[in-house]
Amino acid sequence: MTGDTGQAAAASAVVRNTPARIGFWAAGAGVSLILAIVMTPMFWLMWGGFYTASMFLCGAVAIPAGHLGRRRGKRLGGHDRGAALFAIVTGWLLILCSLTLLVAYAGLMAGLGFLVGSAN
């Protein structure tokens, strides 16, 4: 009988910090999108809006999930707090990169429009 209660206690001792893990995976997906942009610049030129919007969404998911994970990790004795911090920092960097890409893309379009206008 005591073996059954020990197994039940061991099973309930497994703690999961789900928000931290969600934030970690969203941040990882955003970093992979940055790597995809660097490794395949032609695809970014064709599908730039998709890459930029996906990076922004990954950052927008990673930041609140990271904050929730940090708070929950504090209650769980520090479980996955590092992953949550990674999600927060990477999420902000993803949003910064996506806004930078948006400004660069708008500047490129404005510059091309100016060149076409001055050629006529």
Score class of each variant (00 low, 15 high):
residue 76 L to V: 00
residue 72 R to K: 14
residue 63 I to C: 01
residue 93 L to H: 04
residue 113 G to V: 03
residue 2 T to I: 09
residue 84 A to M: 05
residue 91 G to K: 11
residue 88 I to C: 12
residue 8 A to N: 09
residue 113 G to T: 01
residue 104 A to V: 06
residue 106 A to M: 07
residue 69 G to Q: 06
residue 7 Q to I: 11
residue 35 L to P: 01
residue 81 R to N: 05
residue 82 G to I: 10
residue 94 L to K: 04
residue 1 M to W: 08
residue 33 L to R: 07
residue 42 M to F: 05
residue 67 H to V: 11
residue 43 F to C: 01
residue 107 G to Q: 05
residue 22 I to D: 14
residue 59 G to Y: 04
residue 18 T to E: 10
residue 58 C to K: 06
residue 53 A to E: 15
residue 26 A to M: 07
residue 63 I to P: 00
residue 98 S to L: 05
residue 114 F to V: 00
residue 17 N to E: 03
residue 94 L to Q: 02
residue 83 A to C: 04
residue 3 G to T: 06
residue 33 L to N: 12
residue 110 A to N: 01
residue 86 F to W: 09
residue 93 L to S: 08
residue 2 T to L: 13
residue 15 V to Y: 07
residue 93 L to Q: 09
residue 79 H to W: 07
residue 68 L to C: 02
residue 51 Y to D: 03
residue 34 I to F: 02
residue 65 A to I: 01
residue 113 G to M: 02
residue 79 H to V: 13
residue 45 L to M: 11
residue 107 G to C: 02
residue 60 A to Y: 07
residue 89 V to D: 12
residue 103 V to P: 01
residue 76 L to A: 11
residue 66 G to C: 08
residue 108 L to F: 14
residue 2 T to P: 01
residue 50 F to V: 14
residue 99 L to S: 10
residue 72 R to S: 07
residue 45 L to Q: 12
residue 87 A to R: 06
residue 35 L to G: 15
residue 100 T to Q: 05
residue 86 F to M: 13
residue 8 A to V: 10
residue 71 R to K: 14
residue 39 M to L: 15
residue 120 N to L: 11
residue 38 V to P: 00
residue 2 T to V: 07
residue 41 P to L: 11
residue 110 A to G: 00
residue 18 T to K: 08
residue 113 G to L: 06
residue 3 G to C: 03
residue 116 V to R: 14
residue 34 I to P: 02
residue 44 W to F: 15
residue 90 T to F: 00
residue 49 G to Y: 05
residue 106 A to Y: 02
residue 74 K to D: 12
residue 19 P to L: 05
residue 97 C to G: 03
residue 39 M to R: 13
residue 78 G to W: 03
residue 25 W to Y: 12
residue 8 A to L: 15
residue 73 G to Q: 02
